[in-house]
Design a protein around this nucleic acid. Sequence first.
DNA 1: GTTCCGTTTGTTCGCGCTCACAACCGGGCC
DNA 2: GGCCCGGTTGTGAGCGCGAACAAACGGAAC
Lengths: 343, 343
Amino acid sequence: MGTETAGPEARQPVMADVAKLAGVSHQTVSRVLNGAPHVRPGTRDRVLAAIRELDYRPNSAARALVTRRSQTLGVVSFESTLYGPASMLDGIERAARSAGYFVSVASLRSLDTRSVQEAVDRLRDQGVEGIVVIAPQTSAVSAVAKVSSSVPVVAVGSGARSSIPTVTVDNRSGAEAATRQLLDLGHRTVHHLAGPAGWLESQDRQEGWRRALKAADARVPTLAAGDWSSRSGYEAGQRIALLTDVTAVFCANDHMALGLLRALHEAGRSVPGDISVVGFDDIPEAAYFIPPLTTVRQDFGELGRRALELLVAELGGSDHPISRIRIAPEMVLRRSAGPARRA
Amino acid sequence: MGTETAGPEARQPVMADVAKLAGVSHQTVSRVLNGAPHVRPGTRDRVLAAIRELDYRPNSAARALVTRRSQTLGVVSFESTLYGPASMLDGIERAARSAGYFVSVASLRSLDTRSVQEAVDRLRDQGVEGIVVIAPQTSAVSAVAKVSSSVPVVAVGSGARSSIPTVTVDNRSGAEAATRQLLDLGHRTVHHLAGPAGWLESQDRQEGWRRALKAADARVPTLAAGDWSSRSGYEAGQRIALLTDVTAVFCANDHMALGLLRALHEAGRSVPGDISVVGFDDIPEAAYFIPPLTTVRQDFGELGRRALELLVAELGGSDHPISRIRIAPEMVLRRSAGPARRA
DNA sequence: GTTCCGTTTGTTCGCGCTCACAACCGGGCC
DNA sequence: GGCCCGGTTGTGAGCGCGAACAAACGGAAC
């Protein structure tokens, strides 16, 4: 101990070092650090000064060991390179920080239960106190519900019929609004380019579309489906361009709408002259499509933030029954949707 | 101790529990867990069985405390909702996982030194063993270099003149290739819609463009600059559309190219008929722009992966001098660039 | 049969911290 | 003057694990 010269590899200072320098016990240092009451201002100041002088930083592992709290939250995400998931992650991280938590991420390789299990285990091994799942697929959500371990889990962006707390945009009413908008513009009916099967969002948006059609007594056309990508939108668009009776298409997301727009353009069908198009998401680029895309905006960042707040509330002990937060989306009117011809 | 009945809140099993069940000492359990040699197969099996039966999971905080290794790497990112940063993060996470590390993220509020300092501190407080910085701005990189603490730091996606190890795409040669491509198509010169000042990528791409022009003895037109967003591309496009002598534009990224395309379209200038456009990045949507965008592809995921490998190598003790990995980008030819008129 | 050595297992300690509790200090009160 | 009490500080223990060392075991060599 006494023989420890501050050699070339002077180790990180620990609480005892601070205590010695400030002339107090390590416990007093701890009290200052944790804002405990009953510390004389003068003492506090000396401790603070010592901390600053040594550039002391508490060892989080030691603290976690004794408090049994890692101050870390986990995020499981899939396809996190997409705008939606990336924005949600961003929102989560910001909210976590202001709630005093670190954020650890685990991305999914695929969507089967095993992969989800693996990611959740990984996070648990790290000792996270709670998990947010960004995985809007039916399979992923049910997988999570199944593995749902000892730590609280919240799902975000997914549809809302899982058994775990969920924060999501109201996809159904958003889709309904988009469809109605088109109907109000005088279109006899509205076609739908849906997302892939197995995604809650696909289902909900499709339902909203269907409902709006039914409410207006409009014919329900056969469905086209893509996989969210521009490519799939383009391919569907090539087929749709051949159908002469199509005057309005509601796409399940903006990326597919982009592909659709180009297919229509190449086929010589003008938008919105011949065909009106509406998307969903309002990605930052949507306003710069040709023509600018009318779409349904959802605030991904807000979604992430709310999900994290929900998780923190749960950690706070208020284990109220399962909660579902549903945020209303908002229509953004641009030029890609216009009145039906001969209206 | 003996009075501890497995009440309703049976605590997590610890190594001692496993040891007792398997009839060995805790140290033997530890040996099995860490794959130490000299454990009789029979013993190992009994331990493994006990672990499984109790669903025991090692406490990472305790391990971190004694080994002084958190098995966690930090990522500092800015504007992580963008495709590039998000993809890099994804690549980093995947590589980290296969290297046996957890990943913790900290996003930057703004780009000043204080904000960077804050993020790095946050990560250090958490005990990360190394940090990857996704922050391609000159200011951020220099800030990082300054705060560069006791933990190794690697920058990714940023230009390459910082004092810290860096992984980046060769922006200069990519931009040069893009410009040359346009020149080869017969354009007398090429205009450039640059990224915002202060970004290394802006500078490098601009340099590449300038170099290609010089090499071809072409006139160097005045520069337009945006902020990477489609909106800024659109606004610049409106000005460019007014210039009758512009026949080719190289945009510093695809998003701005999108805005530019629309501005040109609205102004009645056809692409590539009147004006050729080339972008940079090759975001997934670029192939579905109107017209499909010729661009320079960079593999963000690969960038992230390589950065992480570099960091891990550094942690491995091989503190070789500063390394710079530079990955060659690749031109993707599509329809937005064509021969000059009257060629 | 003894010695020696490598394999296998157990014991002890301490990582840096927080918690529970004990000790101390000083002023107000009887 | 002694007692009580609240504010303030210190002491000891232990969180769960891995490292270092010690012990026990068994076979080979003599």
